[in-house]
Design a protein around this nucleic acid. Structure first.
Lengths: 332, 332
DNA sequence: TTGTAGGCGTTATCAG
DNA sequence: CTGATAACGCCTACAA
């Protein structure tokens, strides 16, 4: 038997509507009464019944998030951060690991007030799902019907190159996956090329872009061999993802190459885990906390105000200095 | 405006209580009527309102699952499979990424009918949470107050050794983490030692247990060097986890050692991803699907029957043959 | 400032 | 077989 507002009402000696108001901090109730009711409620271990609240308010205060099957560290972290951020609001989150359509079906039954999708899912057409939808990461696919939050990959890599350039680096390698069909990876790659051009060092780096097969640690690890075979060795490396960079660090270590003394390393993906690498890695990217905050509050805005928000929001990346980069001595 | 049974009733020309019964396949409604109602409901895009159902039935049909922060491939897979399995039942799942207490708080508000916990969380004492709780993986900690489902790690390794022994292998290495405080890893280690003894090959393998620092790919990868430094080379390796084995495969490949021609490899963790390794790995462990099924249905039993089930259920591991093991030729 | 009454969408009970 | 009607826990006018 869970305790309801009626139970509280009996104990408090007031009507249950008063209890309801008191608990909702309504101005229609004396402060004194509020305190008393709150105390009793607390003591009795009262927890509001979401189902009942939902039924009457027509608001579920739930947002649905589709858990992408691809389990990269960044996304797992992002999901966690989103949940944490949501905990500071009246909203809760349900995670669905099903494919898009099935997930939306579930969301409909729960009458979620809004939903968050990841890029991967958005290609399917979404039919009769009315709550607001927010999409993370498809700025390239500008045909999206929904507001989009997207980190600015190009700018991130530009910041990385700028940072290295200012430290005196001129020979800089990019180790990352460059597939035809992944706009995010392509954006990083393009960002790198543009940055080289901006600083007038493209000629120097004709051969220092290494296209890995995938995004895994081994891709970074094995790229080190190719890198070392270069005629002119680089003094700095930009890793295209967390996992790739983890492999790079190991690869260099196995060759007795020290970071940052012998070579500087910057990783894409600005997540706390970078700190835990053998060498804490300086990294660029939009910090996941910021992403999470932006995503959550944009969605809440969408749900509560229905204002047409800017269609796509590019998030500004940040370079977080750790200890994997050093200046080039000879340039001093 | 979402469609309710009343809307359907109007269109169908029956009372809404009849609609309710029809939709629930009650024997109190003519088959004909049922069909008609179902057709209309479907056409109108009707989805039942969980909140309302919950309110009247006192059953939320939701189970809560606390998402362990430790993100190993196996657990991610397990969570997904559990969700898939739950989809075949009337139950839904909410995932919480919060710490135990906060998660339970949320679960209470949603009035979940049951909850699933992972080993990591269970040490905290749980107060005033009434729905049944099922714990995955703490058989060692027999002080658990809740029913436990646990894979039999020891037996898994025993099966691996047996399999290799029958193939003619006598020099077998175990590469895994052996920490003081992780009962699962210790169980595997103990299982290995017992198995060696059973087959009378402990003396042969005095030095072929490699205690890795961690459970990551690099731990497996770098263990290969130590392994190769052994006086008497082994003909088979058992990897203690999915990630470790992934590292082992890469490590061997880098040394031009072929699997299974030059060396046989078996991995712990029986998950589908084993198939995707460069060399599809023969593996031992309770298949995640089976675990998921067991977990889900045990919990459902718990929720619906309240029968006191056996306190701890050890799941029998299975060896899944792929192509990473070969017989020793000279024994033929 | 507090209490009363109606209703949210659904199921269950009991008449028809 | 079908249709009213009460009830689930809560919120919100509206009345007192």
């Amino acid at each position: 038997m869970t305790v309801t507002i009626k139970d509280i009402a009996k104990v408090a000696g007031v009507s249950y509507s008063t209890v309801s108001k008191a608990l909702n901090d309504s101005p229609l109730v004396k402060g004194e009464t509020k305190k008393k009711v709150a105390a009793i409620a607390n003591e009795m271990g009262y927890a509001p019944n979401f189902a009942a609240q939902h039924l009457v308010s027509k608001k579920s205060k739930i947002i649905g998030l589709i858990w992408p099957t691809i389990e990269r560290a960044v996304l797992a972290t992002l999901v966690t951060k989103i949940s944490n951020e949501l905990n500071k609001t009246p909203y809760s989150m349900i995670l669905s690991v099903d494919p898009l359509e099935r997930s939306l079906e579930t969301f409909k039954k729960y009458k979620v007030d809004g939903a968050i999708l990841f890029e991967e899912d958005v290609n399917v057409k979404i039919s009769n799902f009315s709550p607001p939808i927010l999409v993370y990461g498809v700025s390239r696919n500008n045909s999206s019907d929904y507001p989009v939050i997207d980190p600015d990959h190009q700018q991130a890599i530009l910041k990385a190159v700028t940072y290295l350039y200012k430290l005196g680096h001129r020979k800089i390698a990019y180790i990352g996956q460059i597939p035809q069909n992944d706009p995010r990876q392509i954006a990083k790659y393009e960002g790198f090329k543009k940055a080289l051009k901006k600083f007038g060092i493209e000629e120097l780096n004709k051969t220092s872009i290494i296209n890995t097969e995938g995004l895994d640690w081994y891709d970074g690890y094995s790229a080190i061999n190719k890198l070392l075979a270069l005629d002119e060795p680089v003094t700095a490396i930009i890793g295209g993802s967390y996992d790739i960079s983890a492999g790079i660090v190991r690869g260099l270590k196995d060759k007795q190459i020290n970071i940052p003394e012998d070579i500087s390393v910057i990783s894409y993906d600005n997540i706390p885990q970078m700190e835990n690498q053998e060498v804490p890695l300086t990294s660029v990217g939009v910090p996941v906390e910021q992403l999470a905050i932006k995503i959550v509050h944009t969605l809440i805005d969408l749900m509560e105000n229905e204002q047409p928000l800017p269609q796509v929001t590019m998030m500004t990346p940040v370079l977080t200095e750790r200890i994997s980069c050093a200046p080039i001595k000879q340039y001093y």
